[in-house]
């Protein structure tokens, strides 16, 4: 099994203006999907990210305050999952409810740092 990173973008601003009930229903779908990952034993971990933040750059170590991109492009959270290969990882991601609210998931293989096979 390999490890993969899911990066979630967008899907939040689309919820603005939604009713409280609709947001709860959306959250319930997320819970359901997370539960599926967990029961399959593929969920390694993950966290939401606060849109605020800081960015350091350059030799001068300049610090700027975030957010740095518009809401729909911002990484709102990440998950690490286990899968046989990238295709299986992408297939697993299809169940994520963020796709129903115009969000995107970037799936990236986590590279191993030992000797390539």
């Amino acid at each position: 099994m390999e490890k993969f990173l899911y990066l979630f973008r967008g899907g939040m601003s689309e919820n603005i203006g939604q009713s409280a009930e609709a947001m709860q229903a959306h959250m319930q779908k997320w819970m359901g999907w997370m539960k599926t990952l967990e029961s399959k034993g593929v969920l390694v971990g993950g966290e939401p990210l606060d849109p605020k933040g800081m960015q350091l750059s350059g030799v001068n170590k300049t610090i700027t305050d975030g957010p740095f991109v518009e809401a729909k492009e911002m990484v709102g959270g990440f998950l690490v999952v286990k899968a046989k290969d990238i295709h299986e990882a992408a297939e697993l991601a299809k169940g994520c409810p963020i796709l129903e609210v115009d969000g995107k998931i970037e799936v990236r293989p986590i590279q191993k740092m030992d000797m390539p096979k």
């Binding site: 939040m12 919820n15 603005i16 203006g17 409280a20 947001m23 959306h26 959250m27 997320w30 819970m31 997370m34 539960k35 967990e38 993950g46 966290e47 939401p48 709102g76 959270g77 998950l79």
Partner: peptide, 17 residues
């Protein structure tokens, strides 16, 4: 209130209520 609920959705959906 809308903002508060959105924050909850954003954080809780990762599985920890």
């Amino acid at each position: 209130v809308q903002d508060t609920i959105l924050s909850a959705l954003h954080v809780w959906k990762f599985g920890k209520i």
